[in-house]
């Protein structure tokens, strides 16, 4: 399913003294199967963009297209259930939203809310719990006796059980330990590949953005500052640094090596292996300095 945002503007509490412009002139294309990373400071408008992706809010200007549904400022939308079912959002710290007596009930809640039968919902819960790398036995436990990392996975399973076409992840690894972070990101990467699940990742980690995304959009002051592939975005790190954003460690080190040696590398390296190769050429001093 494709999603398109066209010149979207959103004002919180429009036409009141508290009106605040959150995003402006935002255009983003999400063809089916894309992996997009959305980057920017807290307050840059990322979360507002994210809420448009499954019509939680309606633009105050511009158009949002989600599959066959078009959402415009003035049109009243009656039934958005099918949209919400197809675009699953994993909010920050999703484990805070767990509430049921058992893990199984918690995972089944979403699908059953959308009219899926209990039997089918339970089958989906079993599939979802495996997809997030937990064993079926956990289904009968209370979500509150699980570890933080397990709770996070259960919450994600609840979204996967809706069987969405698009999954939106708001800082899915925040607060996890290094292994937990890597496991969760690898899980999303394989879901993306195996099921062609469109993925939108809101993150502060430039490493994750450059490793997993095929497109990156940088948000700044409510606008899309830049869009491009990781190589395009990170080949010009100066602008990111000006915006007070980080660049991947690899890019940063390349930058430092370049200024120490007074020479530019042939390309921007996005992996450690690449950087080591390029740096070796420099160190062996093939061509003269």
């Amino acid at each position: 399913m494709d999603i398109t945002l066209q010149n979207v503007e959103y004002r919180y509490q429009a036409n009141t003294p508290f009106e605040r412009l959150a995003i402006e002139d935002v255009s983003i294309d999400l063809p089916a199967g894309t992996f997009l990373a959305l980057i920017g400071h807290t307050g840059s408008g990322k979360s507002t963009v994210l809420q448009h992706l499954n019509a939680l809010i309606k633009p105050t200007k511009g158009t949002v297209k989600i599959g066959d549904t078009t959402i415009t400022p003035n049109k009243k939308q009656k039934n958005l259930k099918h949209v919400r079912q197809r675009v699953g959002i994993v909010f920050q710290f999703p484990e805070h939203q767990l509430f049921e007596e058992t893990v199984e009930k918690d995972i089944c809640f979403g699908p059953m809310n959308f009219g899926v039968s209990e039997q089918e919902a339970k089958a989906r819960a079993r599939r979802a719990i495996q997809q997030v790398g937990l064993s079926e036995e956990i289904l009968l436990k209370s979500p509150f006796e699980l570890s933080g990392g397990q709770m996070r996975r259960v919450a994600i399973a609840g979204v996967l059980a809706m069987e969405p076409d698009v999954i939106v992840l708001d800082e899915p690894t925040a607060g996890l330990d290094p292994r937990g972070r890597q496991d969760i990101m690898n899980m999303f990467a394989s879901l993306h590949q195996e099921r062609n699940l469109s993925t939108v990742l809101v993150t502060h980690s430039m490493e994750d953005a450059s490793r997993y995304a095929d497109q990156i959009a940088i948000m700044h002051n409510g606008k899309v500052e830049r869009k491009g592939t990781p190589a395009e975005i990170f080949s010009n790190p100066e602008r990111l640094l000006e915006l007070g954003l980080d660049v991947p460690e690899v890019v940063n080190l390349q930058h430092k090596l370049e200024s120490a040696f007074g020479r530019k590398f042939a390309k921007t390296c996005l992996s450690m292996e690449d950087l080591a190769e390029e740096a070796m050429k420099l160190l062996k001093g093939g061509d003269s300095l």
């Binding site: 290094p178 292994r179 690899v250 080190l253 450690m272 292996e273 950087l275 080591a276 070796m280």
Partner: peptide
């Protein structure tokens, strides 16, 4: 142990492997 290695250490290791 479920931890990570700081980036400069990882790069140092890689350079050593490559013979620096």
């Amino acid at each position: 142990l479920g931890l990570d290695i700081p980036f400069p250490v990882k790069m140092s290791k890689l350079f050593k492997e490559k013979g620096i």
